[in-house]
């Protein structure tokens, strides 16, 4: 009952310009790279570390009061970067990246807990940016499961097709996979097409 009342009054008085925006997606799609770029652009500070090793982000990290100004409009956001969601974790995969066995086991344990934490945060989001690797097949079940859950929860979604600077990138394939969603192709690494990305963030928050 308290939770219901809290949600009701929370929703009633929620300022639309202080929204929680979650970055979700599979591991190594570039969620933290994009969140870093956004935070660095508007607060001067990055959010987390990035690595070619999957599951580098193993706990939810966030930055409060990120004020974005774009085309004469301003918006205040809470940026929530989440661990990549996967259906399997094998510590031996970390060893392949040169990580020692004990450290690899520790990372695997943290990664499983990170995925559980990311899922628990889903309910808390006002809107979600799903970051996909544009060089990968978009039809993976993890992508569909995340989007299906956001749809069921009526949480607005923007899909970002990251790594569009790579030769194998196929933004059109992602657009074809999710024709009902806004898809914006970017390169977080090279900060390509960020103007369009910010346009889409403003459109996304209007749907909250």
């Amino acid at each position: 009952m308290i939770k219901i009342l809290s949600r009701f009054f929370g929703g009633l008085f929620k300022r639309k310009n202080n929204l929680k925006i979650g970055f979700y997606g599979p591991p190594n799609a570039g969620k933290t790279s994009l969140a870093n770029l956004l935070c660095k652009d508007w607060t001067g500070e990055e959010l987390g570390t990035v690595s070619e090793v999957p599951h580098e982000t193993r706990e939810v990290q966030f930055k409060e009061k990120v004020e974005i100004e774009h085309n004469g409009k301003k918006m205040l956001l809470k940026i929530v970067d989440t661990p990549g969601i996967a259906t399997k974790i094998d510590y031996e995969d970390f060893i392949e990246y040169g990580i020692a066995k004990q450290e690899a086991k520790k990372r695997a344990k943290e990664a499983t807990q990170g995925i559980i934490e990311a899922i628990k945060w889903l309910d808390d989001m006002d809107a979600v940016i799903i970051v996909l690797d544009a060089t990968e097949n978009p039809y993976s079940q993890v992508n569909l499961t995340i989007i299906g859950n956001l749809l069921a929860r009526k949480i607005p979604v923007l899909i970002v097709a990251n790594k569009m600077d790579l030769r194998k990138a196929n933004v059109k394939k992602i657009e074809a996979a999710f024709p009902e969603y806004s898809v914006v192709g970017i390169s977080a690494k090279k900060a390509t097409n960020m103007d369009n990305f910010y346009d889409e963030i403003f459109k996304l928050t209007k749907r909250v």
Binding site: T87, I89, T112, Q113, I116, I119, V142
Partner: peptide
């Protein structure tokens, strides 16, 4: 589906030989 992933991760965490699901 998301609960299946959540519970799978909890099991990976607790069962040494279990790596997860496809």
């Amino acid at each position: 589906e998301i609960r299946l992933i959540e519970d799978t991760m909890a099991m990976v965490d607790h069962i040494k030989t279990f790596k997860g699901i496809e």
